[in-house]
């Protein structure tokens, strides 16, 4: 079934020919333990494969060789996928786009940790944080609100709907006053920025044992809530966003802190109690602002 690659060697250096097939056939080289730049690492990957939303999935084992420590985790998966295509198999589906750690598209649970062992996004996780011979488990974000679409791809539309419920300042184009009309104290501006850094990747939900989106929601509530521009909608924003968050089937907060540990952008755990305070304040004020 394997097509010859010799004719395309020029364009696929090393991408397919030094990889091993999934059935564990004898491996030609003998370098087992070598970590050298020339041979690279050999890894066993156990990846969640699921053909479609309604179909059964399972952890499937693959072995990859020649993995350079300078590769990102996604480069490593690219290498595996190129080989799978060459073998006529379907490549592993995963979301990714900017590969600079800012778009929030990528995300997988690596060895039980959202985005893997480093406090960064999966695209910025490099293989030097793994050892030759490692077995790595790769799974999709797990939460009721994030149904699996295929393999490692999940539907995170629930997060968009939480923003749509109130994660904005109503300022139709053209209605804005002059930018310097309202000064914003620097500490407030800095707090707003620190919370606005959220990339919406969903790692907080994936890491939370309750599948809660509290950190995500709190980041936006705090970002807009500390700014004078956000004051008019302060109460309705938090009430509507929390309602949407609950309606989407996210769990509640049990103060475990896994979300903040997993967050690649360092959104502070305290933002959750900030949101709780905002919510209770809005309730005291009688609901709608």
């Amino acid at each position: 079934m394997n097509a010859p690659h010799s004719t395309s060697d020029r364009t696929q250096p090393g991408a397919t020919d030094d990889a091993e097939t999934t059935d564990g056939a004898a491996h030609g080289t003998t370098d087992g333990a070598a970590h050298g730049a020339t041979d690279g690492m050999e890894l066993t990957l156990r990846i969640w494969r699921q053909p479609g939303p309604e179909e059964q999935g399972a952890m499937t084992t693959y072995r990859v060789t020649g993995i350079s420590p300078d590769m990102s985790f996604l480069d490593m998966l690219d290498t595996l996928n190129e080989r799978l295509i060459a073998e006529g198999d379907e490549p592993v589906a995963f979301d990714h786009d900017c590969r600079e750690g800012i778009c929030g598209a990528c995300g997988m649970v690596i060895n039980g940790q959202a985005h893997g062992p480093q406090p960064t996004t999966t695209c910025q996780l490099h293989m030097r944080h793994f050892d030759d011979g490692d077995t790595i488990d790769v799974e999709p974000w797990r939460a009721a609100a994030f149904p699996v679409i295929r393999d490692l791809v999940v539907d995170r539309g629930a997060l968009d709907r939480v923003i749509g419920a109130g994660g904005y300042i109503t300022a139709p184009t053209g209605s804005a006053p002059e930018a310097h009309a309202t000064a914003v104290p620097k500490p407030a501006a800095d707090t707003a920025f620190a919370h606005a850094e959220c990339i919406g990747c969903g790692a907080c939900v994936a890491a939370c044992p309750n599948g809660a989106a509290m950190l995500f929601t709190a980041a936006k509530v705090v970002h807009l809530g500390v700014l004078p521009q956000g004051a008019p909608e302060r109460e309705s924003r938090v009430l509507d966003m929390v309602t949407a968050m609950d309606d989407e089937g996210f769990g509640g907060c049990t103060q475990v802190g896994a979300c903040a540990t997993a967050c690649p952008k360092g959104i502070p755990f305290e933002s959750i109690s900030d949101m709780n305070r905002e919510y209770l304040r809005a309730v005291r004020k009688g609901g709608r602002g």
Binding site: I169, A171, G174, S175, A176, A179, A189, L227, Q229
Partner: peptide
Amino acid sequence: TEIIDQCVAQGVPFAREYGGLL
């Protein structure tokens, strides 16, 4: 110039000086 006004109104957290201005 209108773009900056618009974005500030939306809550874009531009860098600010200690006086609170952009």
